[in-house]
Simulated assay, not measured.
Amino acid sequence: MATRTLRRRLHHGDLDGKKNEIIHGSMSDSLDEPLLGNYNYGGNHSERYDHSSEQDILDDKKKEQLHWTYIFSNLIQQWTQWLENIIAGSGSVLGRFLPFPSVIQNGRPIYLSPLQEERLRILRERLQVPFDSACLDHQNALKQLWRLAYPNRELPPLKSELWKEMGWQGTDPSTDFRGGGYISLENLIFFAKNYPESFQVLLHKQEGKRAEWEYPFAVAGINISFTLIQMLDLQSDTPTSTAGVRFLEILGRDEHAFDNLYCVAFRMMDAQWLAKRASYMEFNEVLKSTRTQIERELALEDITSVKDLPAYTMLNK
């Protein structure tokens, strides 16, 4: 609870209140001198000050006040520097729990925890990996997608007319990854493994009145990955969009936030497709309206995870 309170005060810039509380306590414990100077007593049991002039007494009081004001100011400065060092020091125990500004939005600092920073770093590393048809791991991932999509069918060669049935544009799926990279294949695999019913419904176009010229499933998935990357400013040094900043908050609670959001976006895109009675030539328009709807839902209050999004309920149908 104390860490949460300190984080909240740091986030709102309310450092003065905390400084006063802590430093005042430290000073009062260490002081063993009277704040207004020393007194001498003597003569016929009557109390007399060494300074007979009232003006001298006032001058002494002012000197004492200035003296302690100076000490107090120095302690505040030292406390501020100490606090900054804790926040900046990633090796410090407290530094692991205190937030630090990593993103600036509209001139205001956005505080990311070390956990958020690490997950964002990992996600950005995923974005940099292109699909490599010569890479054995990438070939195996493509085969895994086929097995998840068609568990009762024989695995075709990596170049085959059968891949078109999944929604690839040609006989070689590797030629369709140009914009999405390897992460778009990871997204499809995540969708198939974690939400298999929705995956199969979209793959086989099992809901609604479909157009004669349908969108190709796999290629649509790559386009959704690319759209989310742009919408969330994931390739920028400092995300500035509201959706991007809200996503960073969600990422701190769910390391699979991007993949889960991808599944929601795919389901939402298909719903938009049906609502608009769209055909292949209108796919970009549907994708644009899907992005707008996701941005609206991310901007809603009390959204702390992808599962809080209204559209997430579609994945359970």
Rank of each mutant, 00 (worst) to 15 (best):
A243F: 11
D29S: 11
M268N: 04
V264T: 05
R121C: 09
M231V: 00
S289R: 00
F72Y: 14
E118C: 03
C135D: 13
I71G: 02
R96S: 12
D50Q: 14
E84S: 04
G89R: 11
E165M: 05
G221N: 11
F226D: 15
V201E: 15
L75K: 01
E212V: 12
R246H: 14
L75R: 05
L202I: 13
F191V: 04
R124T: 05
A88M: 12
H67E: 05
K307P: 03
L188F: 02
G91W: 05
E301F: 02
N20V: 04
S53D: 14
P114V: 10
W82C: 12
F177I: 09
N284A: 12
Q78T: 06
S289T: 07
D16R: 14
V306W: 00
Q81N: 08
L287E: 08
N106T: 05
E47P: 09
F191K: 08
E117V: 12
Q200N: 08
L94T: 02
K193G: 00
F72W: 10
D270C: 03
V219P: 02
T313G: 06
I57C: 02
R147F: 02
D132N: 14
A218W: 03
W168L: 00
V201K: 15
S30Q: 10
D56W: 01
G252P: 04
D270H: 09
R7I: 06
M231E: 07
T80V: 02
V306T: 01
F266H: 14
N74C: 08
D270W: 06
N187M: 06
T175N: 04
L251N: 10
L287S: 09
K307E: 13
L287G: 03
V103F: 09
Y49T: 01
Q200G: 00
P156Y: 04
F97I: 01
E297L: 00
E214A: 05
K317E: 06
A278K: 10
P173N: 01
Y262I: 03
R108W: 08
T304A: 06
Q105S: 11
R48S: 08
Y262H: 08
D302T: 06
L112A: 00
K317D: 06
S289Q: 02
F258A: 01
L232H: 15
T292C: 01
R126A: 07
S90P: 00
T227K: 15
D56K: 04
G181N: 05
S241I: 13
F217R: 09
L148Q: 12
N316S: 15
Q235W: 06
